[in-house]
């Protein structure tokens, strides 16, 4: 299994998902937008979850959002042991201004300070030649 920095497993990149990782590597957040009904959605899907249209385009979305929920992990229970050195990891569901929600780690914020409703902005941590992972920091 290919490894991220510090030995974490790399995501497997497919033709479907590659645009996301490539854009993240270039410091941009992109998501799929339905060419028929305009629905924006994340995770990468094979058709529009609203209308079933197969024509989904990757479009850039604003990197700003709001913390919809948070849960700080103090243990690496169901992830690779290499994450131990990152603990505690402040995990959030981020509600992006442009619509969809995503899991995002909140950096630059002590666990006791994170609040639902906080304004955040994405930044990107490279994990390989081909990919970066979006994380968020308070703005």
């Amino acid at each position: 299994m290919a490894q991220m920095p510090q030995g974490k497993p790399l995501p497997e990149i497919t033709d479907l998902t590659r645009p996301f990782w490539t854009a993240a590597k270039a410091g941009k957040l992109v998501m799929q937008k339905c060419g028929r009904c305009g629905t924006l959605d994340f995770l990468p899907k094979p058709w529009c979850i609203e209308c079933g249209h197969l024509g989904l385009d990757w479009v850039e979305v604003k990197p700003q959002g709001t913390v919809y929920s948070h849960s700080t992990a103090y243990t690496v229970m169901m992830n690779d042991p290499a994450w131990k050195s990152d603990l505690p990891v402040v995990m959030c569901i981020i509600e992006l201004d442009d619509g969809p929600r995503m899991y995002g780690q909140l950096t630059d914020c002590p666990p006791e300070k994170v609040r639902i409703g906080m304004r955040v902005q994405a930044h990107f941590e490279p994990i390989s030649d081909a990919a970066a992972v979006p994380k968020f920091r308070p703005i």
């Binding site: 991220m4 974490k8 497997e12 995770l43 929920s69 948070h70 992990a73 229970m77 992972v133």
Partner: peptide, 19 residues
């Protein structure tokens, strides 16, 4: 969906239900 959870730092079900 692991691709968008594991590398993002989601610590499994406990993390998801904590949210």
């Amino acid at each position: 969906f692991w691709e968008f959870q594991g590398p993002f730092g989601v610590m499994g079900a406990n993390n998801q239900f904590g949210l």
